[in-house]
Write a protein that binds this DNA or RNA. Structure first.
Lengths: 252, 252
DNA sequence: ACAAAAGTGTTTAATTTACACCCATGT
DNA sequence: ACATGGGTGTAAATTAAACACTTTTGT
């Protein structure tokens, strides 16, 4: 991420990154979408088109850096662990008129064939502040089961991200890189339930998840809740990686 | 642009595909590499550089098609199920002199920043014929534990492909899309052992693998082997996919 | 006092592991 | 006849699944 020599920044016209940021609010799984600020029917129709935060990569930056930069530029989110999960780029990706129209308004080569490298992450929706900027007019969390019309092939990209998230969460302890600092076991269970769309037995869940040695209980407990306050846990990165490299698997 | 044939074929200068083809010969795991036909020290030194089969994509083809085409063009392999597993493209990917020298000999824009989308597959090394063509002077199987010097970041790409293969084989029944038509359970076990680098108990392996309903025994048996001939099995694609979608997991 | 989620064990069923011998064939 | 890998079952240990009540807090 170098700034300064403004005139020097060149973008690669053929490669972009897109970020699928899943957010969990304690109840439901959401995705972060941006309103690209395009009036679709001339008048101020309600038909807006939403897209994933994404943009072209710079010629001098690697893919991961590009993903982090673009996410930051459009939504203000930084220091988020992003995991690459696939690349998309059918030549007929640009089939919708409004997509082309929009590209003409922001790109030097709007008709260039673009391959996008997709990343995803999972964060606590309420622990980060979103600030739309750049061409993002607004940025919102959308419930995964109730999404608006999306530009390009972003619907497809999100679906694949979800598949990946489900798969990973089933066979690995939910990429804890993707999780917030501290959490209660109830929250963690709800998260799993939201991702896997099943109900889990509380006692069995706790036993299994605690058997993995990288969950560490904190002294801190919930406050101000109208029920028995739950203990917070955090997780030990070192332990986690040792565990991970040791060919582990687990199942819920 | 590159080929004299038709003036119409245009390549995207910034995006390529690379194929990591794993081959199993009944004993060991190999990778298919091509000799790009470059004399490295002027004289006929033994220091050749090998690369994965890969090349730029066309402007009008999607990524999967590009991978299939490029693989076919360079090695003669077709009808092989390829699975995308990642994209690579550090801006400093082009650090080796000989890589640049070679690109200058075959590309219109040899210095362009290239992002490559990587695919892998696994086949029976002895059931396909390899015919090097295009810029591939030769194509060989190399033992996974005894590989020559590789161009670009191909060493890294292969390592990640192997990790992916290991991971998948552990949690899914080894992408049977990637397997040959018919096989004995002994061969299948050896394959798993080669990938996972462990020994497996024969009886337990058979029980577990047969419990999955998509392995179907054939009437055919081995012939001409100096021991009790083994039964051949094949696998039922439909069953496999039904199984797969049903949230299954399994472990060896 | 009540509503709401936290926290905690045991019994039963299913799965995994370890382990050894006979069989069919080619040389 | 012998060398080679194919093919088979069982008992013991581990892991998964089902299940209900008491605790702590805010209102």
């Amino acid at each position: 991420m170098q700034k300064g020599k403004q005139a020097e920044i060149r973008f690669n016209p053929n490669v972009s990154v897109d970020c699928v940021i899943f957010g969990f609010d304690g109840e439901r799984l959401k995705v972060l979408l941006i309103d690209r600020g395009q009036e679709i029917n001339g008048k101020d129709s309600e038909e807006k088109i939403y897209v994933l935060p994404g943009n072209l990569i710079r010629e001098d930056e690697n893919l991961n850096d590009a993903a982090e930069r673009v996410l930051d530029e459009l939504t203000g989110l930084s220091d988020i662990f992003l995991e690459q999960f696939g690349s998309f780029g059918a030549p007929d990706r640009l089939t919708k008129e409004h997509d082309l129209a929009w590209l003409k308004s922001i790109r030097a080569e709007p008709e260039a064939r673009v391959i996008t490298v997709a990343y995803y992450s999972l964060i606590r929706a309420d622990q980060y502040e979103i600030h739309a900027s750049g061409f993002a007019k607004e940025a919102f969390w959308y419930d995964i089961d109730d999404m608006p019309k999306l530009g390009f092939d972003h619907q497809d990209i999100i679906e694949q991200a979800l598949t990946q998230l489900k798969f990973k969460s089933k066979y690995q302890p939910l990429g804890f890189e993707l999780l917030p600092e501290k959490f209660t076991l109830g929250q963690l269970q709800k998260l799993y339930e939201a991702i896997l769309k099943t109900e889990l037995d509380k006692r069995n869940f706790r036993r299994k998840i605690l058997k993995m040695s990288f969950l560490v209980p904190l002294k801190e407990k919930q406050q101000g809740v109208p029920h028995k306050p739950a203990r917070y846990y955090t997780f030990d990165h070192d332990m986690y990686h040792r565990y991970k490299s040791n060919d582990f698997y687990f199942t819920l």
